[in-house]
Design a binder for these strands. Sequence first.
DNA 1: CATGAATGAGCGTTCATTCAT
DNA 2: GATGAATGAACGCTCATTCAT
Lengths: 188, 188, 188, 188
Amino acid sequence: MARPKSEDKRIALLEAAVRVFVAHGLGAPTALISKEAGVANGTLFTYFDTKGELVQQLYRELKLEMASALLRGLLEEKGLRERFFHVWSNWMHWAMSNPDKLRVLALLAVSEDVTPELRVEVGKFMWKVEVLLEQSRANGPLRDAPIAFVGEILTSLANATMGFMASDPENAEQHCKTGFEALWRVIG
Amino acid sequence: MARPKSEDKRIALLEAAVRVFVAHGLGAPTALISKEAGVANGTLFTYFDTKGELVQQLYRELKLEMASALLRGLLEEKGLRERFFHVWSNWMHWAMSNPDKLRVLALLAVSEDVTPELRVEVGKFMWKVEVLLEQSRANGPLRDAPIAFVGEILTSLANATMGFMASDPENAEQHCKTGFEALWRVIG
Amino acid sequence: MARPKSEDKRIALLEAAVRVFVAHGLGAPTALISKEAGVANGTLFTYFDTKGELVQQLYRELKLEMASALLRGLLEEKGLRERFFHVWSNWMHWAMSNPDKLRVLALLAVSEDVTPELRVEVGKFMWKVEVLLEQSRANGPLRDAPIAFVGEILTSLANATMGFMASDPENAEQHCKTGFEALWRVIG
Amino acid sequence: MARPKSEDKRIALLEAAVRVFVAHGLGAPTALISKEAGVANGTLFTYFDTKGELVQQLYRELKLEMASALLRGLLEEKGLRERFFHVWSNWMHWAMSNPDKLRVLALLAVSEDVTPELRVEVGKFMWKVEVLLEQSRANGPLRDAPIAFVGEILTSLANATMGFMASDPENAEQHCKTGFEALWRVIG
DNA sequence: CATGAATGAGCGTTCATTCAT
DNA sequence: GATGAATGAACGCTCATTCAT
């Protein structure tokens, strides 16, 4: 191959897209993304057939990255609550460290380009967390609710907490704990 | 341009916008909205100076409508939990009856056109609920958390519950109660 | 209607297209056409949904104009040969007077945008000439050939004659007659 | 770039161009041509400096091939009419055997890339036919017309006949003869 | 020389907004 | 005020051509 398609460039484009989408919304021109990535206009389209394709891949990669971050350092020996808090804490800290990505995920969540199928596919990245959630709520007050509902509650509390931590970073640690305690009251 | 002639037309445009935005996203052409409203292209701009203005007014009106719905039939004599559940129930049922408006609110929530100031302004529509929330959490586990945080938790749990009710309308009433119980465990 | 779509503008666009296509081929940018017509870029698309639509309408109109020109002043009382020569002469002179249109028709004849259906539709503009042709060849040497074939021979001889007249306008009249005599030897 | 290595590849590209141009018109991307030829995108440009160059060479080669086909098996001893019919018949059969090339020649005939000079150059490939034509018309009705005009008439009748043969291959032989008789009535 | 990724000018089309009627 | 044609900046995407490998 002459000049192989470089994974670096693909990643540069995705990262540029995050910055550009944060600044201008998903409606931002592809030209801005390629410029931000330091490549030519047309190059973007050798890596992504359409803008929609870029958006979809970005959604997948961000969700995957987030899901991976959640599990970092998770040990099996601890108690359920501790394990869950570990995940929760990872989650919150990933969000604090990646505010742009978090913001873009919020945009992507309502994008036309993110299809229900893609949402399902990407939901699977969280299966380990789902297992933990299953176990945690097994004897809790939501033991009879549909697990999907419990999952949505988890996600929504996580988002609320992230949002609040971001708005008051001084007391981020405190809010992280508060959020978890709220969660644990609901499910644990 | 200050006071347009027909309030009817203004409302028709806003309602058309809801339908069009649900079907095509916020990126939908204004021409589609005016057509859906049964008025000419240019007429839209005598009611709203720009598309952004329309978006903002729509956000304001939808939030106001929702906030009003929450308080319907609220009596002072009952207990705190009952009063809060009444509000919660109103909220959930408004959402169930207005899935389009709910969906559009989700889009508007991340729109470029909805400024932080507007968000603040519109947040005030919920002041009565906030009072209720203040009272409810006064002796609860979140008594020391910032009220804004508690508010976000409320909102996020409400959204999660609405979403789940919409996806499983058969058991909507059940989910409504489950959601409320989760909430009450957190704040009450 | 506010400002009714003006037939003038439509015609101006079509005429501009002729000039631009002659100068730059059918691949010429639509922007050049609108500029040449003295209207804005986007205006072209209120008159023609796509560039292809413009091309098709142009084909239709040019063919119609040419077909109409052929019959001008045709009287019934004369002999067949005289009537046919009248038509032929009209044809040749229209071509001499409209070299641009003739050139564009040559481009359109092989354009992707001109569908077989359109060709058939447009072929009907020549039905009076076809009748004349039928009568003329009825007792001639091609009396047993398919009429479509005879029609193609007519067209091809006409094109050859037009082409040559244009290249040597000094003796155009002479060539016009020569061409007709050639034709008449074949069909008459 | 002067003398490319592999004549095979050059020919493969020209043949691919015929197929691609037939299917997509002269506007077809060069990338399609190289793919069809089984070589890389950029390779095309070591064989042809520009797309226009390829178009010109293709025109030249097709015209040359056609001209060569006309003379195949032509013997001097026969009478003029027979010799001319031999050429005519070769011509028609080449066209029938190479419908794609014929179609592409029709496209090339109006292409921007085919300059008048090239047309003249390529016209010389037919000089033997021109000699035959000169002799044939020497005592015929067109004896006083410019030879170029007679040439155009020949070409146009040939094209009409080819076209019709292609559209009704069942009776191709018949049409071939009919076409020739028409021609001979005009020039012979 | 062959390859195919990189380039960027260019194109058809859209659409918020303006304005003549 | 209502209308809808006019406007032109903007956008996504293409493609001939170049050039690093």
